[in-house]
Design a protein around this nucleic acid. Structure first.
Lengths: 344, 344
DNA sequence: ACTAGATTTGTTATCGATAACATAATATAA
DNA sequence: TTATATTATGTTATCGATAACAAATCTAGT
């Protein structure tokens, strides 16, 4: 770590014997500069170890070159995949992702969005369709494209890339019902925290109602039930309270796996004694024994689609009005042995 | 998304009837401004929906307010935890994390570091102690604190927060040997890609040598073996080639779990027929049945320690020379049922 | 060789904020 | 009340780059 301060463009210009404007042009593509001076300037830049200050460049061009993204948690394979899709999709447009974590808190989301806006992102991506009033206003007035992902909000701010979590819950309930299960439980979280998980539960329970099935076998906590450990202890409680339960849907594959391990520990067979399904198509669901039935929401596509929309919105001439895109991502039920109904 | 461009500080100043310098002061803490004008300016700012442009502010103060971090993969719970520790530790110093993924490629790391430096981070954090020559030079000449984490490089660039991956491999080998296992295998990746995983293998095999144990039972690929699926198929191959293997160390808990599932599928009992240990103390290792022996490297502490060093380095007066800190994180062997030696 | 047109380079103003200094307003002490 | 210290506000220059325009150089066709 050298302590002398970084060389600037005019240092390079001086060394190369040209004006700094010429340096600026030589270091960019798509600008006119003779091959000879380009080489001369490149050499001077290398000698000084010059690195462009994109902070200053951005002030002039009014382009910062990054897209702000908020996700609930970094430690979640689904969001990680979405971010990967975003990163890759934005790379070709020379846009970097600036990530912030909200910890499933709307208040934190508001703070993060405010902080991110100070950095003048060229677009903003948020997870979910529910935000604090202030946050909605920040987003709406930001002057840049906004994408809400992982949900289908009733009143979108701008663009949307997601799927209906409620419908996802319904799909799972329908599947379990069709498989012949009747006493069906749910392990999941609370509305105030994990909005999307709660929507899934709502859809799930509504479907049970529609089929005339009992819907009291659920377990809830005021924290999202997303980890293996939480799933495991939730299943313990559920087995105590409703030992006759035949099948359970979990808010996440991780909690589904935890729940399954509780069954194994108690000598219950999955799916013979207890069928289990999860959500999110995490690695674990396809690699456990038995493999776990789950809903694949194609987290990667959410990222790539979001990136596509952003790139399109930014490349459009400002003259034509940019219409808000709403993309519904297809979900896919992965039927696996953990929910095989034994013909008894 | 409104299309009129964002208001600037002088817009606020005009509305409030003061100079823009006064606005600048009123909107910051630790600056002199009367309560009355502060309120007046705040009101004007709110009315206009003004958001500070930290890009411009940074150009003047020469502080961008963020720290650049490169990690091999976002989809890795260990690195996610480290990032979380970093984020939290830096938040109180008002520093944001700018994340980039290298995909376990040194070449990509070089590109990322170069790109990140253009944004003038106040510090740079990289994963591992091996970098391309160019990348090393970039880092060394960046003029800001550099932290290499997750390893103990022989010749550090600047600060270090990590542990010896080689020693970690040795520790596991020693443990398995002490448990009474003799025919020990290894499932892991290749040097060119996952440097740290390879170091662990090196330590592991050296220890086997030291104990006079056979060391041919390893499986290697030119890709890192870090996922459950990779672990599962690696174990299949290993069982074919060396069916007499008694115990296996895996480069990660995820591959360890995959390997364990292969055993289960083939009717082998863990640990009776095959002992398995992993690395990284992922959730899965503590929640599977049986639970998997692993090495906890305290990924979170790596993040918080790194954050601490950065905050300290940045707060120090530039007068006193900043000495490079080297912090060795303590690792902890978590002994679990997956490696219980049956007294036969 | 000469001129129109194309290409390369230079000059000046500007992006939106803050630092540094200068000045005005207010508070405090003698 | 006056002098002095303190606080509040304004002015000007600057951070490091690029846009917009201007000038200089080169190229090609006749």
């Amino acid at each position: 770590m050298s302590s002398k301060k970084a060389p600037t463009m005019s240092d390079v210009a001086k060394l190369a014997g040209v004006s700094s404007m010429t340096v600026s042009r030589a270091l960019r593509s798509g600008t006119s500069a003779s091959a000879k001076t380009r080489a001369k300037i490149q050499a001077a830049a290398d000698e000084l170890g010059y690195v462009l200050d994109s902070t200053a460049a951005g002030l002039s061009t009014r382009k910062t070159g990054f897209v702000a993204v908020t996700i609930p948690s970094i430690n979640n394979a689904n969001f990680a995949q979405t971010v990967q899709g975003l990163t890759e999709g934005l790379r070709e447009a020379n846009l970097q992702v600036l990530l912030a974590y909200t910890g499933y808190s709307l208040q934190e989301e508001e703070r993060m969005v405010q902080g991110l806006l100070q950095r003048r992102p060229e677009a903003i991506v948020v997870t979910g369709g529910v935000h604090s009033d202030k946050c909605r206003r920040y987003l709406a007035e930001s002057g840049v494209p906004v994408v809400e992902m992982w949900d289908m909000p009733a009143t979108p701010i701008n663009h949307v890339v997601g799927f209906s979590n409620k419908q996802a819950g319904k799909t799972m309930a329908q599947f379990l019902q069709q498989q012949g299960f009747r006493k069906i439980g749910f392990i999941g979280g609370n509305a105030a925290i994990d909005v999307r998980g709660y929507d899934r539960r709502r859809g799930f329970l509504e479907a049970l109602d529609a089929y005339g099935l009992e819907r009291h076998r659920y377990w809830q906590s005021d924290q999202p039930v997303l980890t293996m450990e939480e799933g495991a202890s939730a299943m313990e409680t559920l087995l105590e309270q409703y030992p006759d339960t035949e099948a359970v849907m979990c808010a996440s594959d991780l909690s589904a796996f935890g729940a399954m391990m509780t069954c194994v520990r108690q000598g219950l067979s999955v799916p013979d004694d207890m069928a289990i399904c999860g959500f999110g198509a995490y690695d674990i669901s396809g690699n456990s024994v038995p493999e776990i039935t789950t809903l694949d929401v194609s987290a990667l596509s959410i990222g790539t689609e979001t990136a596509r929309i952003i790139v399109a919105a930014l490349s459009k001439d400002n003259k034509e009005p940019i219409s808000a895109e709403v993309v519904e991502i297809e979900t896919k039920l992965l039927v696996r042995p953990s929910t095989e109904k034994i013909s008894s």
